[in-house]
Design a protein around this nucleic acid. Structure first.
Lengths: 190, 190
DNA sequence: GTCTATAACGGGATAGAC
DNA sequence: GTCTATCCCGTTATAGAC
């Protein structure tokens, strides 16, 4: 048995939002990829924005799950954070959530911006908890600002995507996260 | 006497590319902001892409000049790099070059991608030179990978923009660069 | 639930007058 | 050099048949 049409529409939108963003994705593109007709989309959803909202919520769920897997790796707090940094995949594709911040239509539409803001905020907070744990266990120095450190870690990944996409070369991403990992190791060894 | 029409067109495009990106900026928007008519644009330029190429080259020049000013601050190598991190302005606006990496039309057009790739590459290399200087002067430990560290610094800024735009709050940017600055100070104190 | 036809609008470019 | 009129096309949505 096949997947139902509504699900295929959300899945196709989810992929296209990641590849091209919101403004650059037309209903026609979505219908083509989903193998559905015009009527199906407007039956299941109020329109492009409504469908994109559903798709973004799915993107958010996938991203949270990915982060959970990376941070659940074996080892100390710093090893877990470094695993988050270094085990990102598809650095040329960029971040499905982060890329939305440069899409004017998303910024102007609260329903679309909301899942993006909330998910990135959640990633920072989640990594900050891992770091705080490391402070409690004296792996990181007392007085470490976990929120600042976690923000820097997430920003390095997000910015690494930008650098890699600009050069069309994953090595630019790798260099940035390697730099961050080195500084983190040094911080935990203080 | 006023500025000539061609210059106003480039300037208006430069602003709009920064605010909205390439795909989301229409010739109509540009003409309106520049106070020019349809004919002027197609007289001075072959079309939207040609005009955008000129505007992006101007954006690149502005960005290089800004970086030069920040890195020319007084002090040690680490102080200069930290000045680059902390004295960024307009964190909600994002980076005029970096934002282009999420614009599909730019990625698909070599003439548009080229100035973006080259400028970001230049920023990384320029910061790497400051760091290398710091290594020579024993401010940073021997064996420091200047390219990796510089990549991480630039990525933190680029990613800081993403985080701040997602939250619509400059504090998210500030937290990321503060984290990076703290780790850098610690690295130079090794 | 899904299809096709159609409409209303804007993007990007061209033509030719002035 | 700059203007206005016009053209072609794609986007987004609606209407109504099946």
């Amino acid at each position: 048995m096949g997947v139902d049409t509504r699900t295929r529409l959300v899945e196709a939108t989810h992929e296209l939002l990641w590849e091209r963003g919101y403004a650059a994705t037309s209903p026609k593109d979505i219908l083509q990829r989903a193998g559905a007709g015009q009527g199906s989309m407007y039956h299941h959803f109020a329109g492009k924005q409504d469908l994109a909202t559903a798709a973004l919520e799915q993107s958010a769920a996938v991203m949270r799950a990915d982060v959970d897997v990376l941070l659940a790796s074996e080892g100390s707090s710093s090893e877990r954070v470094i695993a988050y940094l270094e085990r990102q995949r598809d650095s040329l594709r960029g971040c499905r959530m982060g890329r939305m911040t440069y899409d004017a239509d998303v910024l102007a539409t609260p329903e679309l911006l909301h899942p993006v803001a909330e998910t990135l905020q959640w990633v920072v907070a989640t990594i900050a908890r891992v770091i705080s744990r490391g402070v409690e266990e004296h792996e990181f120095p007392t007085g470490t600002d976990a929120h600042q450190l976690a923000s820097m870690v997430v920003a390095t990944v997000q910015g690494g995507y930008v650098l890699a996409r600009a050069q069309q070369d994953p090595a630019a991403f790798d260099a940035a996260v390697a730099g961050a990992a080195e500084l983190l190791r040094n911080w935990s060894a203080r």
